[in-house]
Amino acid sequence: MSTSWSTTDKATSRPSAPGPSDDLRRKRRAAKVRRLRTGLPGLLLVAPALAFYGVFVLRPLAATVQYSFYEWNGISTATWAGVDNYVRLLTDPDLLGPILNALQLIIYFSFVPVVFGVIAAAIIRKMGASRLAGISRTVLFLPQVIPLVAAGIMWTWLLATDGAVNQVMRVIGLDGLTRAWLGDFDTALPAVGVIGAWVNVGLCMLLMLAGMTKVDPSLYEAARLDGAGPIREFVSVTLPAVRQELGVAIIITVISALRSFDIIFISTQGGPGSSTMVPGLEIYYLAFFEREIGQASALAVALTVLVLIVVLPLNRLTRSDSDS
């Protein structure tokens, strides 16, 4: 709908570049009328979606920004707080800590699954159409299908003191290393990260596989004729071909790390201490337990800005890559 609108827009605005004449002016007026006529049904068609978008996305967004400048408990009248809430974000270690944790989670939620996803996809592609390829694809993608809450509960059982992870470690003689993985200050954040990595690896693999299928088989043939081994083939042919998919995978997983909530809420609730506290969870606690809606909103705005700061350069990176 909107595409047809914008193409007419382009087509009619182009003739206006040379000097104006009567003929041109008349043409332009006619085009304007035509544009309105073709634009109106388009607008009408977009209107319902736009209304929903406005009410459920734009308005809450605006309200969050507004609340962030107030001190409000959610019930009584709010008092204007200016930028106090933002100043506290930068000075209070209780609020800064969660952001640092989220940045650390990027390693587990993004870096690890992307690397594993690429490797797994390359191996599965090699297997061709065999049954094993189908099974591995399903098994690796399954975590994406399971609700995050279920995944969180399952992993808390696996990582518990008497859970499967520790049982296996005892069997292979690593008794000394067993611990309550989610209850230990040193291992809680990495343990939560493992859950995230497990969830995201399927998505990354699927994206990579999709990218790899569009590679022309003759390229591989040519590489092989030039004497390339499987690793050389992977580095020189496969990897450049999936650059765009790689970009998408990194962006999606980085966002999932920064705004993580479900897995952590289920498995550790931010504990022990505040070693696994992340901004999403902190916003929830501030808003619904401490009833500091203003402070929670400020943190939410900061989180949104942080996501944009991290993701926009990545986005540009993939775009310029595809142009070159």
Binding site: V55, L58, R59, A63, Q66, Y70, I75, A78
Partner: peptide, 26 residues
């Protein structure tokens, strides 16, 4: 496009009229 932007601004204005929670109080 222009009307969409106008709509968004309208919503922003709507949200920013009074301190939150004020009207329900009495």
């Amino acid at each position: 496009m222009r009307s969409a932007a106008l709509g968004a601004i309208g919503l922003l204005a709507l949200a920013a009229c009074s301190p939150p929670g004020g009207d329900e109080e009495p």
